[in-house]
């Protein structure tokens, strides 16, 4: 049963990724803009253009090009970046840790903040506090992540400059880590200088990404909590002498988290999409920032690699959400 589930899952993942590969490969070639013209200086001869086009294989038919590329991908060769002249997989995997750290930090902030506001809202339901929290989260939700980024830069970069507004880590630091997970590896190695520097660089972009999601979690989780708090088992817990706060935390929260989780999974993939703009805003050296450069430079192999990686990331997140669903809901456990 479990084996079958895993197999079906892997198969659908493979089909999804293949579909993404076809679409992105076709789109970047059909869209206007030519990578060759970006590489040559003005006044290049027809021969130069033809030679370069042949070198990168752009003279072959689209299906032919695709077969060459996908054949390489299956063997783990994602091609070479046109602008950076390095293997795409090295470039992309080198940047992935930065984006993962940023998104996870944002997710943690969103869960903590949204969860806290939801619990307080449910605790103070039908009072002015609940109305105030609703209005605040509505306002927070209506401001997009990049605008939050600008607000934070103004607040903590200019007016009260306590946080770093650009880059991922202080370049003066000597980092000889085995992975590019500066924050996590710094934690493990006890390199607090690296940890605090990456944290200071990460906090504002992470907050910008987290706030809209936090507001969404707060609203939905509070609504679910209020419904669960009308259930018979929460009433019984009150009769048994538990305070309202402990009824919320011990009896209601896990039940209310189930429907919220589905949304968090979907929204987290949007959050990762949001890193593209927010990383650019803070010159944070992650995948998103690289994606923008790749698009501007018509670096086709790099665009394809980044999009494929994002797609793989989304399917992994969906899988994790489904797994956590089973973990939280005992009714799904033995099936």
């Amino acid at each position: 049963m479990l084996l079958k589930t895993v197999f079906v899952r892997l198969l659908t993942t493979a089909i999804t990724l293949f579909g993404v590969a076809v679409v992105v490969f076709t789109l970047v070639r059909v869209a206007p803009g030519n990578p060759i013209s970006m590489m040559l200086p003005p006044g290049a001869t027809e021969e130069d253009i033809a030679a370069l086009t042949a070198l990168y294989g752009f003279d072959k038919s689209l299906p032919h090009q695709f077969m060459i590329w996908i054949g390489g991908v299956i063997q783990g060769d994602f091609g070479t970046s046109i602008t950076l002249r390095q293997p795409v997989d090295e470039l992309v995997l080198g940047r992935l840790p930065a984006t993962l750290e940023l998104s996870l930090m944002a997710l943690l902030i969103a869960l903590a903040l949204g969860g806290l506001v939801a619990v307080i809202g449910a605790r103070k339901r039908s009072t002015g506090t609940e109305v105030g929290l609703d209005l605040t989260s509505g306002a927070v939700l209506s401001i997009p992540d990049f605008l939050w980024g600008l607000i934070f830069v103004l607040l903590f970069g200019v007016l009260w400059p306590v946080l770093s507004i650009s880059g991922r880590v202080d370049p003066r630091l000597d980092i000889d880590f085995t992975t590019n997970f500066y924050f996590f590896e710094g934690l493990l190695r006890g390199r607090w200088d690296v940890v605090s520097s990456t944290f200071s660089h990460m906090l504002m972009p992470a907050m910008s990404l987290a706030l809209p999601l936090a507001a969404m979690i707060a609203q939905l989780l509070k609504q679910n909590l209020k419904e669960v708090l009308n259930q018979d088992y929460t009433t019984l817990a009150r009769v048994r002498g538990f305070s309202e706060t402990s009824v919320i935390l011990r009896e209601a929260l896990q039940n209310a988290a189930l429907p919220t989780l589905a949304l968090v999974g979907v929204q987290f993939t949007f959050l990762i999409g949001g890193t593209v703009i927010v990383e650019r805003l803070f010159a944070y050296e992650g995948l998103g920032n690289m994606a923008i450069d790749a698009v501007i430079n018509r670096d086709l192999p790099l665009i394809q690699g980044i999009v494929l990686l994002f797609a793989a990331l989304f399917t992994v997140i969906n899988l994790l959400v489904d797994l956590s669903y089973t973990f939280l809901n005992p009714r799904l456990r033995n099936g």
Binding site: Q231, D232, T235, V239, P330
Partner: peptide
């Protein structure tokens, strides 16, 4: 309290 509906009076999780 002995509640009315035993199906909803126990916490499912």
């Amino acid at each position: 309290l002995i509640p009315q509906d035993p199906l909803t009076a126990l916490n499912p999780v």
